[in-house]
Write a protein that binds this DNA or RNA. Sequence first.
DNA 1: ATCTACTTGATATTCTGTATCAAGAACTAT
DNA 2: ATAGTTCTTGATACAGAATATCAAGTAGAT
Lengths: 144, 144
Amino acid sequence: MGWTERVVEHLADEGHRLTGPRRAILEHILRYSAPFTAEELLADLQKAGVQVGRATVYRTLELLHTNQWLGLVHRPEGEHGYVVAEPGHQHHLVCRRCGSVIAFQGCELETLLGGLAERLNFRIEGHWLEAFGVCRTCQMTSAA
Amino acid sequence: MGWTERVVEHLADEGHRLTGPRRAILEHILRYSAPFTAEELLADLQKAGVQVGRATVYRTLELLHTNQWLGLVHRPEGEHGYVVAEPGHQHHLVCRRCGSVIAFQGCELETLLGGLAERLNFRIEGHWLEAFGVCRTCQMTSAA
DNA sequence: ATCTACTTGATATTCTGTATCAAGAACTAT
DNA sequence: ATAGTTCTTGATACAGAATATCAAGTAGAT
Ligand SMILES: [Zn+2]
Ligand SMILES: [Zn+2]
Ligand SMILES: [Zn+2]
Ligand SMILES: [Zn+2]
């Protein structure tokens, strides 16, 4: 069962309706190999001849993000981009060259933060970790 | 030598001019105990009777950020805020209650990411880590 | 004091994201 | 299948954030 099917099932369970625009958006999201923004998706949908309103795109992405089917990544430059995700705690490796994203769970991080928290008496409730660099493919594709 | 003096010195070394607006902005920045945005700073400056243009505020913050005298923090909700920082690699603990920020360096994180990188053949060039929770003071101040 | 290059800031403009609300459609229950 | 209820949609208007422009102003060097 693919990502789309799982999302559809989950949304149905939560009582959300499966509408045309939502289907179209879900399908289009899978075409991205790099983080995308709401405006980019809107433009791509229109370019593809799919008639969807701006507000719907924003609302649907928000819905998916809230349910953790989309993760949020930010580039060092500043903007935010969405990436396909799975519910649960995870982090990302983002390629600076091609933008591809690899998700990972590795949370020995909890240990590091735990020690820190104890030392500072700071109650940690969550964290945000994102690494960026050059993916395997891009390393091979061209020099350095 | 305080933050402001170090910034001033650094900017001078780099050939940037020390203007009135820049001085005013540097002074005001130190008044924040929580992450702030360009618009907030602009409003505060005007409220304080300091006459500075919007563009200048944005440009100056950008300049400071580029030189790592300001760090960028984003709240789980989405917006970005600036925080006073020191050049070099560091991360932040942000209190969800009062917004105060504690910087830390602890990068055993490099180890975790290193292993991951090797396994995936992903060349990691940098990362972004931010933890959020409730600071010591806020834990004492009120319940939970 | 003079000069030059860097800065500034008012204005216009572009973009992003949200609020509104009547029309339309999905799901449920007959 | 039909009807009904509630959720969704999207055109439009609107608010906000950030950038582009460019003449006027000024810091710092000589
Ligand atoms: Zn790549
Ligand atoms: Zn983690
Ligand atoms: Zn606090
Ligand atoms: Zn680090």
